[in-house]
């Protein structure tokens, strides 16, 4: 009963978020069809999708928070928990596994002090596994933020993470 009367508690989406979401809505037959786009837009601005953000999006799309959460939690690249400034997507699919991505993960863990699913204490990085990144000829690969790193070796990690290495 309280659910439907908590509008006042939901923080508004920013003007730019609304503009971007509404631009997507213009292309589809009903508002909830842009659920994934809207989640990505808000995530791009806020880093992740908090419960509050999710409810604000749901209201804007005329759908329940429950339905939107069902969508949000289905997709692995919608973050429903806070992540660091940059997300490390470490490919652990077959070609990268052959080329030693597990060792690479241990290296990263050692260097940044985080396991899979964890965020560094300085909030700079979150380490996540990801499905095959489609660069198997350059295995092992990983993405840091939007940038793809190919043929990653232990030695190249220092360059990628800079002074984050070893602070843990």
């Amino acid at each position: 009963m309280s659910d439907r009367n908590d509008a006042a508690l939901i923080p508004a989406l920013s003007a730019i978020e609304l503009t971007e979401i509404d631009a997507e809505i213009a292309h589809v037959p009903y508002r909830s069809a842009v659920a994934i786009d809207a989640l990505k837009i808000v995530q791009a601005h806020r880093g992740w999708v908090s419960d509050e953000s999710l409810r604000a999006i749901a209201r804007h799309l005329d759908m329940s928070a429950d339905e939107l959460d069902g969508v949000a939690t289905f997709y692995n690249l919608i973050y429903r928990r806070p992540v660091g400034d940059r997300v490390i997507l470490l490919c652990n699919s077959i070609s990268c596994w052959i080329k030693g991505c597990e060792g690479l993960r241990e290296q990263i863990t050692g260097q940044l002090g985080v396991g899979l699913g964890e965020t560094t204490a300085d909030n700079r990085y979150t380490l996540l596994p990801v499905t095959c990144l489609g660069a198997c000829d350059k295995a092992p690969v990983m993405m840091v933020g939007d940038e793809l790193h190919e043929n990653v070796e232990a030695l190249s990690l220092q360059a990628i993470f800079g002074d984050s290495g070893g602070d843990k």
């Binding site: 699919s93 077959i94 070609s95 499905t131 095959c132 489609g134 660069a135 198997c136 000829d137």
Partner: peptide, 11 residues
């Protein structure tokens, strides 16, 4: 949506 493990042609 190229995501098949070991597949890197569409990219």
């Amino acid at each position: 949506d190229e995501m098949e493990p070991g597949t890197f042609k569409d990219r």
